[in-house]
Design a protein around this nucleic acid. Structure first.
Lengths: 222, 222
DNA sequence: AACAGCTTTCGTACACTGTACGAAAAAGCT
DNA sequence: AGCTTTTTCGTACAGTGTACGAAAGCTGTT
């Protein structure tokens, strides 16, 4: 009963899942740079080397994190209207990547996709195919949609967190260099759109997404 | 003459530019993970701590690298046909990011844009504005185009290098899990398009780009 | 020639990283 | 009880970024 499995008393009971879960929390809370084996072990309440029983190395933890993030993205359902399904998925993906911005940087160096990642891709492909896209059209549509989603998330991650007025903060130091009049168009866009009090870059996501969804079409020519 | 400046004899003559240049070469050759202060100093032919005279810390080196990469992207010219200019810029950006894939991951954590980056943005904005886009339309078009470019580069970076047949390599290990029949649509797209001998994912870039350029329009409604 | 004052180099040391190796402890089984 | 497998973790090592301060080199003035 009080074996290595179920924690009967106060035993926290370590497991691969718990390691990854805590790693995700730590990355969210303190940033991916602060995710070290030692800090992770401490936040779990164990010792550094104990983690290596559940995980081969740190790379494997990062792989697991990316897979966890993919698992959070809402899975589209084949058979339903493809456009609405893709819209839902895209917005969900953006939200997830905004919650875990560090995951974007991780994507660049990941080699093997995890099981949840594969499941997600499978469901997305199924939805497009069921929507009437040919195999080739599906490949292109998927590439286009995901490129937009990842790219938007990447740009969003390069901004100061998000909220009411942080745009003025990122713009201010740059504005000084602008005093020279070197960058009139950057000044224009900064003052006339970005620094407007109610401007939220996140809202631009929908614009580009709709434009792409509108232009995508199954059947006939590609 | 044999002062601290021009290297008259065999003196290599250190400088901030040289440090960044060598850092770029090292990152390209051995990957961003292999770029350490010590390895960089050695490749330059100096000692680690000497670099800190030209650079405040490693972060500043990474900032400089990103700016160097941006400098490589061909700058659009305002006044010329905006669509053609954006096409050129997009293809150039993709090529540059394929040469320096590590730069994509760096983008996520960069805080302040460098001078070359600003210059590039300025020129792009100028071209769109001159092409008849309003300020708001420019912001949206720019966001859409760059999201697509960065996202595509990000996905491309997650692939095995590039060449004739590496697609079969990334697909093979995954294919084993497919033997279970869990992922029929992934199998379909893998066998029917990705693993085709003459398939090159890079070619898909043009498709999405043209679709976006076609849908973008200046004037009237946004 | 000697000194002073820059600029530029770099040796040493410290705290921190991932993890190889192997010992120790705990749990399960006969 | 003992034996075996599973799970934990202490120690040690090579590598990281960089703070601090000493040294060296160069320039200009006397």
């Amino acid at each position: 009963m009080t074996g290595a499995s179920e924690g009967a008393a106060g035993r926290p009971e370590l497991s691969r899942g718990k390691v990854l879960q805590k790693a995700l929390e730590l990355a969210d809370a303190r940033g991916i740079a602060a995710l070290s084996i030692r800090s992770l072990a401490q936040s779990i309440g164990t010792k550094p080397m104990s983690l290596y029983y559940y995980v081969a190395n740190k790379e494997e933890i990062l792989d697991g994190l990316v897979d966890l993030v993919f698992a959070e993205i809402s899975t589209p359902q084949a058979g339903r209207e493809w456009k609405e399904q893709m819209r839902r998925r895209a917005h969900s993906a953006r939200e997830v990547l905004r919650r875990h911005p560090w995951a974007i940087g991780l994507l660049e160096s990941r080699k093997v996709p995890g099981p949840e990642t594969l499941k997600h891709h499978e469901a997305t492909l199924a939805t497009l195919r069921a929507g009437g896209f040919t195999v080739e059209q599906t490949a292109r549509a998927y590439s286009l949609l995901d490129s937009y989603i990842y790219g938007f998330a990447l740009q969003e991650a390069g901004l100061p967190v998000s909220g009411g007025e942080p745009m003025a903060q990122v713009a201010a130091p740059i504005m000084e260099r602008f005093a020279t009049g070197e960058y009139p168009y950057l000044v224009e866009i900064a003052t006339q759109v970005v620094m407007q009090p109610d401007y939220d870059y996140g809202n631009e996501f929908g614009y580009g997404l709709e434009l792409i969804l509108e232009a995508l079409k199954p059947a006939s020519a590609g």
